[in-house]
Amino acid sequence: MTARRKERIDELDVLRGMAILSVILQHALGVFIRRPEIQFADAAMIGMLFNITKFAVPAFVFVTGAALVYNYYDNLDYPKFLWKRVKDILLPYLIWSIAYEIYSNGLPATNYLWLRGLAKDLLYGNAFYHLWFVVMIFQFYLVYPVFRSLFRKAPAILDSKLRFAAAVGLLAAIYTFIMWFSSSYIPSADLHAGSKAVQVIFIELRDRNFIYFFFYFMLGGIAGLILPRWREFVARSCIWNTYVLAALFIWIGFELMQGVSGGLVNLNYSTSLKPSMFFYTVSEIIFLYGVSMVIANSGSVIFKFFNLAGKYSYGIYLVHAFLLIYAVGMVDRFSLTSHHLLAGVYSFILCALGTIAVVMLISKIPGGKFLIGPIPGK
């Protein structure tokens, strides 16, 4: 049986659009905060902006969970489902990974060693700095039947507010422990597993292991399963959650400043894989979901822009790293050496607009979907 096609949830496209633009902003700011001549004031402001945009990857996981449960809860033809994701996700990923490999290392010698290195980079998402995300998100498609079976048992829990609160609280507690394990225990204990495979998958490459992002997928799945009630919850939470978000933002900002050494701000203190950032990110996703609902209901130019960016977000994600290189080069010509924050913002604007234009052009050519993934309306 095939999955029943349902209408698109507009606010998910808006949230996805916010997330992809935040990814580009993160990467643009990251270029300039690492320059040794940066002033502390610029670095501190970039760090604060970086914290604001850290919701992006968890938001993508949240949207994936919501969309999958919303569309594939009743019926799932798993082989057809998985084959579609191979064509829509892995094929463009393969093409762009090869392109980034050639850009970084030049034309390859067609020999066994190069093919083995490419295969390893594809498996780990190491062909370029941003491609790890594809490896991580695809794991959710692979194991979706397991999550689906859990969600199909959820109605009995969802019917009781007490059981529902207890279940979400338990998931949050488990995930908080995983975040503590990742950010505190592993580094302090210099943990080494007995197995090389376990060491690589669960310790060295934990930033692309789906287990370390499962809560956002489950939260998105809950939203997709009880969409009207989820929207009501988001609307009711707008006031109190704003205060919670502000308090958590101060907390993670304080942690970021604790990592300052020699006037340099270390963005590694803004990792998503720690308890404080987990709490902050959940609050921010709920807040931005509410904003997305308002934008989606407005039908304004802002909605059309975020909606467009959201629908083409995968292609934008794959392409933007190339465009950022040239955007930064253009901005550097203006010699904004004492204005790194401004240079980062300018680079972001050029990269975002340029990438959207390129992806739109690719969508018009025959076979464009093999480069940027699914094309809306086709």
Rank of each mutant, 00 (worst) to 15 (best):
N111E: 13
Y212Q: 12
R116E: 15
A247E: 05
G117N: 13
L25P: 10
L123R: 06
F62G: 03
Y216I: 06
F210K: 01
L323S: 12
K87Y: 10
S283Q: 02
I302E: 13
L158Q: 09
F306I: 12
V234A: 01
I95L: 15
L131D: 03
V359R: 01
D74W: 09
A247D: 02
A321R: 01
R116N: 14
M18A: 06
G117C: 02
A343Q: 09
F133S: 03
N209P: 07
F50A: 06
I372Y: 13
T271E: 15
V69D: 10
L171F: 14
K304P: 02
M1P: 10
P92M: 14
F306K: 08
I203C: 04
N241S: 05
T2M: 10
F164V: 03
N71S: 14
A166F: 12
R152H: 06
S313C: 04
L21W: 08
V57P: 01
Y317T: 04
L49Y: 07
K6F: 00
I186L: 06
S184P: 04
V260W: 07
A3K: 07
L225N: 03
G377Q: 07
F81N: 04
F254L: 10
L371K: 04
R85I: 06
K196T: 10
P366M: 09
L118Y: 10
H130I: 15
Y312R: 00
T355M: 13
Y269G: 00
L150C: 06
A66E: 02
V63M: 03
I325D: 12
K196F: 12
K274P: 04
D13Q: 04
I222E: 01
M18E: 02
W251R: 13
Y280W: 11
S292F: 00
N268G: 13
I174D: 04
V69T: 15
I178Q: 11
A59G: 07
G290F: 05
M1V: 14
N75T: 15
V31K: 09
I365E: 03
A247G: 12
I286P: 01
L91I: 13
P376S: 14
